[in-house]
Amino acid sequence: MHSTANSLTVTDLSFAYPNGHEVLDGLSLSVHSGERVALLGPNGAGKTTFALHLNGVLELQRGSINVNDIPLNEENLGEIRRRVGMVFQNADDQLFMPSVREDVAFGPANLGLDKAQQAERVAEALAAVDASDFAERTPHHLSGGEKRRVAIATVLAMHPDLLVLDEPTSGLDPAGRRELTNLLKSLPLTQLIITHDLPLALELCPRSVIISGGRVVADGPTEELLSDTQLLAQHRLELPYGFSPVVAGPAT
């Protein structure tokens, strides 16, 4: 493995919430540039907690994080936040401005871009998620799927190197899920997709990582992991009824 091509390197990350709850326990993981990796694991495994570390929302307690060989620390925080685009588990937490346009412009404005550049970024990001039509609408009144797409646009507008999505398909109808899958496929970015949707992992991500009890318990080709019924059962993961990873075939 050539470490220069690593988009993300996490080493020995441990974290406890202030109430003493230990959530991450020596987690290590690296993701290559351009790779799409699924992060699987039961409820409460620490996936969201892990994701919140990736752009410094939660402070490092132990271990280290490198994004494109830049270490995450106080000094590089701004740069890391630009490079890592976080799409939150609940889109309502992410979309807080009065209109979609302003919400997408929020990140670029914080980067210090001027109005013309901001407008350009907004147009481009909304076009990428096929949401140009809702620019003037209020985020609250969008449907779940539309919200999710706009949430992705808000981070695309920052031109990130790494996209981290926390349960991007939860609450979407099958058509919405399909649109989102196609969208993610079309984005030429390194992606870390946290999900409970195992077929989605299989379709999008050649590689999967299972987190359980705050550490990585399995890391390998998605098709292989999903075929290991014992491993899945051990970590409270279940394929949908009648779904066979072998028949469905791996990601392309």
Partner: peptide, 23 residues
């Protein structure tokens, strides 16, 4: 707690304390 999460989301997009003024 939602406010706290929103604040995280703002930080994640480079918020540094002042809301950008929209033209």
């Amino acid at each position: 707690e939602r406010g706290e999460r929103v604040h995280s989301a703002m930080l994640a997009r480079g918020f540094s304390g002042t809301m950008p003024q929209m033209e």
